[in-house]
């Protein structure tokens, strides 16, 4: 480890032309990401931010966005984590096709995803009709929002968890089996704990991606308003000046939560 650090320092001491060029490129990329966000914060006053934070509609929408995305992530996790394990461990016919299908939500336009989901859960669909029987409707309901968020963000969890499981040496699972553990026990005591870091990271990514979803959500539910929809509404009705503080506030809330989660995840990992 020390040796690696030493090499690293030596490398930094003598950057060649190629490296300088790459560093410059990297700087531009970072600027590309940071500049608009920084601009937004610079242009929104503290007073504006506080006003937005006090706004009842904003508070409600942020809270709604956070919990709906969280609920979708947790519910889908029950199905997605065992599925990721299968994808990591087993070879079966059409595996490539299936991993391709898992990635579909990432590559299709999200409004199109919203339209597709609406076809399944609208009042005229089979599921919609069944829901109607118990006097329930997905459209315009947090449950519908949750479906939309989960649909577009699920690949992040599946892919993250799959990588985590793939990195667990199969031999440890075999050893556990020979020590008398049932396959289910092996999964919960060996595979999942050892893959936990990647699984958790997948959960956080899925949640984060769900929070930021706009396209699919707006097709299914304009109301109740999740924050991305609220930002859009403020922008289209009142203009940039009114949308900016809400956007900035939402970013702050998300960043704080993610940083805390990441730190917790790393601490847990360090301890284990």
């Amino acid at each position: 480890m020390q040796l690696n650090n030493k090499n690293h320092i030596l490398e930094l001491k003598k950057p060649d032309i190629r490296e300088l060029f790459f560093i410059a490129m990297g700087g531009l990329v970072l600027l590309f990401i940071i500049a608009p966000l920084a601009g937004m914060f610079i242009n929104s006053s503290l007073g504006g931010l506080l006003d937005a934070a006090k706004d009842d509609a904003v508070q409600k929408s942020i809270w709604l966005t956070l919990w709906v995305s969280m609920a979708g992530t947790l519910i889908l996790a029950i199905f997605a984590i065992p599925f990721s394990y299968l994808l990591a461990r087993k070879n079966f016919p059409l595996k490539r096709l299936i991993t391709g299908i898992v990635d579909l939500p990432i590559v299709i336009p999200h409004t199109a995803a919203g339209i597709a989901i609406l076809g399944v859960i609208s009042r005229n669909s089979v599921i919609g009709k069944l829901a109607k029987e118990i006097d329930f409707s997905f459209v315009g309901n947090p449950a519908g929002i949750m479906v939309a968020m989960a649909f577009v963000s699920l690949p992040f969890l599946i892919n993250g968890a799959r990588e985590g499981f793939a990195s667990v040496p199969e031999r440890l699972e075999k050893a556990a089996l020979t020590l008398g553990a049932t396959p289910i026990r092996v999964f919960f005591t060996i595979s999942l704990p050892l893959a936990w870091r990647s699984v958790l990271s997948g959960l956080i990514m899925m949640w984060a991606r769900g929070l930021s979803e706009f396209g699919a959500v707006i097709v299914i539910a304009y109301h109740p308003m999740v924050t991305p929809v609220l930002i859009f509404e403020r922008f289209s009705s009142f203009g940039l000046k009114y949308a900016r503080p809400v956007a900035a506030l939402f970013i702050i809330v998300c960043l704080v939560i993610f940083i805390i989660l990441r730190l917790l995840a790393e601490n847990k990992n360090a301890r284990s």
């Binding site: 040496p169 031999r171 440890l172 075999k174 050893a175 060996i190 704990p193 050892l194 284990s272």
Partner: peptide, 11 residues
């Protein structure tokens, strides 16, 4: 069975 790489559970 005992493996060459011991297969102790690292966690």
């Amino acid at each position: 069975i005992v493996y060459q790489d011991k297969a102790l559970f690292p966690h």
